[in-house]
Structures are given as structure tokens and as C-alpha cells.
Amino acid sequence: MNNTWYRSVVVGVDGSDESLAALSWATVTADLHGARLAVVAAHPVEVDAEPAAAGLVEEARELAHHAARAARERLHGWRPGGRDIEIRALPGSAARVLAAQSTADDLVVVGRRGLRAFDRALLGSVSSALAAGAPGTIAVVPAGAATDEPRKIRVGVGPVDEPDVLGTAFAEADARGRPLEVLHVTGTDPISSALLDMDPVAASWHEAAAVDLADRLARWSDKYPTVTYTVVIRRGDPIATLLHGLVRNDLLVVGGRSHSAVAGRLLRSVPDSVVRGAPCPVLVVHAHRHPVG
């Protein structure tokens, strides 16, 4: 097990069932990686002198403290990795507060409510904002997802070397003792894909991609020799292919690209779309970590 993969695991709670499920997932993950666990409940700050506004801010502050107490009760004295747990209520919006807790060596965990697709597209969420712009790795645990060990771990890899994405996937597979599926998706146009399949020269894309992936995977296989993995190369829409066949007790790992949450929804970015559509926890890997031994 790589006990230095995460310096700390930070989980946001608001008292909802979804955030408490995220807390359970974060606690297991911190325990597996020997990382510190910090629980954060955010509340807005007072920006208006009007008594009515002050009353709403005070109510939100009380709700944040209640969420922090509920998290403490949920943990029942559990000390992941033998470490004390830090539980705090902090001022500010949830997305801003949690993003401030995220560095290249931290994991930030949030829950995701089961909103309708129309609501998600218009309103976005804390999870979408973090997946789009946080500097470190983000885990999004959707409503209904399993919080115990996953059945399998799937990682989406692109055409260029993404060592932190593969490294995160291998580290999770190693810590959790689960198999890894390495999925590379190429091509989005079914007509062009069909024409390429008719060309014996162009059809060699599968073999070329397999050789490239083999070279990139060799480093991580040597580092984590107990991890078993399979390589799947497919053409099609990246989002639909990444989500295909996933169930609530899987884990998906994808690379992130920094942008605003609104831009992600408008441009249909892969991380934003899989975070909002996956039935299982999703790890979005943003930053390059310091090398781990």
C-alpha cells in the first residue's frame, strides 16, 4: 500500500444523507492510505447589515455546526490510520472553502445529490465547481453510490501521457485490492470510424494504441506488481463509453482540466459530464503531485 499518496483527505458535509455517505467513503479512503481526515462544514459570511440577512446567515452558521456534530456522531470515534480527525465549521461558500483546502497532495471528497438533468445543467453544484477548478484531486460520491470497497476501478486515459491519472488509479487499486480496467477511447464520429475500419492501414489504430498504452503502463505495473489490470480500447463518445456498464459499487478515475463549472457544462467537458452522470464515486485528478517513492 502507498501510504503517502494523499497527505490528507478533506470531506465536505452539510448534514444531508449524501454528504454523510461521502463522509463514510472518505473515512475508508483515509484509512486505506494512512492519510489525515478533515471534515469541513461551510457557511456563508454576513455581507448585508439588514437584520433579515443577518438572521439567515446565523441560521446557516447553526446548520453548519449541526452538520459538523452529525459528522462526529457518524464517525463513532473512528480514527482512520490511527489519527485524530479534525472537524471544522468554516465561513464561505462550500465550493470556495473546499477548493481552498485542496492542494496537489490532498484529496477533497463531496457528495452529489440526485438532481434532475435539467436542474443540474442550469444550477450546477459544489461537486461540478470543484471538479472544474480545484487544484488537487476531487472525489465525487453520488446519491445511491456504494461507500464500501468497489467491485472494480476504471481509469480513462487519453492519447498523451498522464502519469498522475494512471498513478492515482494504480494506487487506489493497490490500496483497495481491486482489479483495474484501463480504458482508452478514440474517435467520436461513427461514420468516420466505420470508414476507418474499412481501411486496413487506418484500422491498425487499435494495435498502435495498445503498444503506446503498454509502454505507459509498464512503469506503474512495476511499481504496483500486485495490481491486475486489463486494457480496453474503443471508439465512440468518450463520456458515454466511460460511463457504460458502471454500477454503484465501482470507482471511476479521470483526468481534469481547469475551467469554470459553467464552461464545463456548456462545452460538455468529459470530467464535468461524468461527475454529473456516474452512478459510482468519481476521482477527478487535476494536479501533478510530488514524486512518491
Rank of each mutant, 00 (worst) to 15 (best):
D31F: 02
V185T: 04
R154Q: 04
V160L: 11
S192F: 15
V284K: 08
T29L: 03
T168Y: 06
V110K: 08
A139D: 07
S102E: 07
A100S: 03
L130A: 00
D161M: 06
A49P: 10
G114V: 00
V253W: 10
S125Q: 02
L90C: 06
V47W: 09
E59P: 13
L115R: 05
A203S: 15
A194S: 07
P80W: 14
R120C: 07
S16M: 07
Q101M: 14
D215K: 06
G158C: 13
H76N: 13
L32R: 07
E207S: 05
E86V: 08
I87A: 00
T147V: 09
V231G: 01
I233G: 03
R7A: 12
L242A: 05
I85N: 09
E207F: 09
R276D: 01
G92F: 08
T147H: 05
V275P: 01
R120E: 04
G187L: 09
A95L: 05
L267M: 09
S128T: 10
L251R: 01
V9G: 02
L196V: 12
V262I: 15
A53M: 04
G293T: 14
V157K: 00
V28N: 01
L283K: 14
T4W: 06
I233Q: 04
S24N: 08
K152Q: 14
V253K: 01
A139L: 06
L23T: 04
V11K: 09
V282D: 09
A26T: 08
R248I: 14
V274T: 01
N249A: 15
D237A: 13
R113F: 09
A53H: 04
G156Y: 03
S24T: 07
H66V: 14
A287G: 14
S258F: 07
A171W: 06
L123S: 06
G236M: 15
T241G: 00
I153C: 02
A173G: 10
V13T: 00
V227R: 08
V292N: 02
H184F: 05
R216V: 07
Y6P: 01
P51H: 01
S125R: 00
A145E: 11
D222K: 10
V40E: 02
K223D: 10
K223E: 11
F170M: 12
G34Q: 10
K152S: 08
G12N: 08
D212G: 08
V108T: 06
R112V: 02
V232P: 05
P80F: 14
G124M: 07
Y224R: 10
G77I: 07
R216N: 10
L251Y: 02
H286M: 11
G77Y: 14
V284G: 15
R268S: 06
A214H: 13
S192P: 12
A145G: 06
E162Q: 15
P190V: 03
D106H: 07
A54Y: 08
P238I: 03
H206L: 11
W5M: 12
I138D: 01
R248G: 13
L242G: 00
L56K: 05
L122Q: 10
L195Y: 13
A173W: 07
G55E: 09
A21W: 05
T241I: 03
G144Q: 08
P142Q: 01
G177W: 12
G81D: 10
V126Y: 11
